[in-house]
Amino acid sequence: MNDSIARAKFIDKLMTAVFYCVAGFFILLLVAFALYVIINGFKDFSWSLISFEGSGIGNLFFNTIYLVFLSLLVSVPLGVAAGIYMAEYAKQGKFTKFLRMCIETMSSLPSIVVGLFGYLVFIVMTGSQWNLFSGALAVSILSIPLIMTVTEDAFKSLPQGYKRGSLAMGATLWQTIYKVLLPACLPRIMTGV
């Protein structure tokens, strides 16, 4: 019996050492790859790369920031409002289950599908040309389910004493949501955004 325990401890130490060696090898490989990319990137770097000229990425970088800003202008109000509705107003039932299933489906859509949908709806069906606002609407389709889910979870995770205390002092449900619950949830919502 004592011999089998000693053998098990030896095998445990041996396998622990093997796994540490494998993990160390992969960490070393990752560090070597990162250093290779960083060193070669700095070696070939030129300031014309980040310019706003034809060969620089300045315009692309600015358009990306602008696209994200426009997308957030659309998705944050809709996502927060939908999350508040799901957390405070929606009654549990078949419709709510169907709505949650739709939200989960929207959050699992591949970005290429959303991009093609945005192209079809916001460019082809409206008869417009390529524009940044159409891209922002397509990106907001991707972010609304996430913001809505984060908002709903933030509201549901608050202690019930916040809501009950505000309602007991004579506030309406909307006043409670706007003045008490939303400020308490704001850090989590901003993290989700």
Rank of each mutant, 00 (worst) to 15 (best):
G24L: 06
L99Q: 02
E88P: 04
Y66P: 07
F122V: 05
G58Q: 03
S134V: 02
S140N: 00
C102F: 15
K94M: 14
T64H: 06
F62I: 15
L67H: 02
F45K: 00
L99E: 01
V76K: 02
N59W: 12
P145F: 06
F52Q: 06
I84S: 05
I65C: 14
L109M: 09
I57P: 07
Y66C: 10
V68T: 10
G79A: 03
V80L: 01
L120R: 11
L28P: 02
K91H: 09
F61K: 07
F52V: 06
V139F: 11
L109A: 07
N63V: 11
F133M: 11
G93Q: 00
L120E: 12
S108N: 12
V113M: 09
F45W: 08
E88Y: 02
F98T: 14
V37A: 11
F25P: 01
F61V: 15
S75E: 00
N131I: 03
G54H: 10
T105M: 15
I38M: 08
K91D: 14
W47R: 10
G79K: 04
N131F: 05
A81E: 10
A82V: 08
S71V: 01
I112R: 04
I38S: 06
S55D: 14
T105W: 09
F25W: 09
S75H: 03
T64D: 09
V37I: 15
Y36D: 13
F62T: 12
F117K: 01
Q92R: 15
V76R: 02
F62D: 13
M86R: 04
I39N: 12
G93C: 00
V31R: 08
I103H: 05
Q129I: 11
S143L: 09
S108F: 00
F25N: 04
V114P: 00
F61L: 15
I123Q: 09
V124Y: 13
I50S: 04
F133S: 09
F117V: 01
N59H: 11
V37Y: 12
Y119T: 05
Y89D: 08
L30T: 15
E104W: 08
L72D: 06
N63T: 15
F98A: 15
L49R: 12
L60M: 15
V76N: 04
L35H: 12
L116C: 07
S55G: 09
M106E: 03
F133L: 13
M101P: 10
